[in-house]
Design a protein around this nucleic acid. Structure first.
Lengths: 195, 195
DNA sequence: GATTGTATTGAACGCGCGTTCAGATAATCT
DNA sequence: AGATTATCTGAACGCGCGTTCAATACAATC
């Protein structure tokens, strides 16, 4: 037996990435075998190598895709006028975007160490790229006198850590709606950098 | 050949835990083999089983030890008078304590998923225990009118995520001293929950 | 209906895994 | 000095790993 009826490259490729994302997020990169991923897709392990040169590249592609998606989505987000409105937009965007893809978020800051130096540097660069966008907002706000932060670089990292943490506890259908979560975090962030 | 001169149980046991902590933190639990740990200690893999029944228990002991240590250290910390002083003490304590043992901190929130249900629940309980201590401070402050937080449970998680994030970027001998980092984070936390 | 090209299988490769255990050695005790 | 005990070695167990590849089955084209 070989190929099953109706199977195509355009279908199997994305299904492999989706299965890998879920399994890596749930059990960790090193704990998931290529055979498990293949089984989740419904193919044999050998077939995966039509879509990725090796296991690490499969992980890298997931992380890269996530970071590109994140940055592109923020670029497309309607930007408010002035640092305060822009910061609010960032806070609400980051929470919403991350809650929509918790597995990818989880992966992106848990499995970086499984990349080789070159791949690691590529993802790390994208992450810094994203962080710089927040820091720019903070610096402009400080310059305009509407924010007060003793160190904008650290404020950036602190805010992102705080916001990204939402994915670790938020449960769909729980006590709070996404909008309410956005309200609460915006309240804290706004006050944390208030002039 | 067998036992080397001067080797003792009281020495080898801690050395195994230390090596495991470092290797698990660096490469991840699943990616580290018992043979690697043994090699780092300078014994054969079989010898590890005099000190742990299996690999998962070795991880569990590290996580449990860390959480017990964290809670005990906070209990021993001089508590200020009133919610504001207590919150400041908590912020500075958490940063200082975590910066002193970055590997254990890393492990404690990255490798929980490698525990079985019972061990997982035990660590999770300790974590909640610790978080409750912060939430109590916040609730007392809100009741006293010195803090304003729309949701103390979420404020707790947000603050802890923010503070714990320090370990991901702080480098010894870098731009900022530990005390300065404490100052900056205390400034942000204080304002974030200000009435 | 035959041919061609793509998608997939299934078996195999060498290797390292977690764990066990009989035997060997060093320290301690009598 | 001899016996005992604690500590560790080294080899072995079955198993699953990431990866490769010839063979094969299907889909598309002619």
């Amino acid at each position: 037996m070989a190929r099953k009826t109706g199977s195509h490259s355009e279908i199997t490729g994305p299904r492999i990435r989706a299965a890998a994302r879920t399994l890596f997020a749930r059990h960790g990169f090193a704990a998931v075998s290529m055979r498990q991923i293949a089984a989740a897709v419904g193919v044999q392990a050998g077939a995966l190598y039509l879509y990725t040169p090796d296991k690490e590249t499969l992980l890298f592609d997931l992380l890269k895709e996530h970071m590109d998606d994140l940055i592109a989505a923020w670029e497309a987000e309607p930007q408010g006028i002035g640092p305060v409105a822009r910061l609010e937009a960032f806070v609400r965007f980051h929470i919403r975007h991350n809650l929509d893809r918790p597995e990818a978020v989880f992966l992106s800051y848990m499995e970086l160490r499984n990349l080789g130096p070159a791949n690691f540097a590529a993802i790390e660069g994208l992450r810094r790229d994203y962080e710089t966008r927040l820091e720019t907002i903070l610096r402009e706000g400080v310059a305009a006198g509407v924010f007060a932060a003793p160190d904008t670089k650290i404020a950036t990292l602190a805010i992102i850590a705080m916001l990204t943490g939402v994915t670790t506890w938020y449960r769909e259908g729980g006590r709070l709606s996404r909008d309410r979560v956005g309200d609460i975090y915006w309240d804290m962030v706004r006050k944390a950098v208030a002039a």
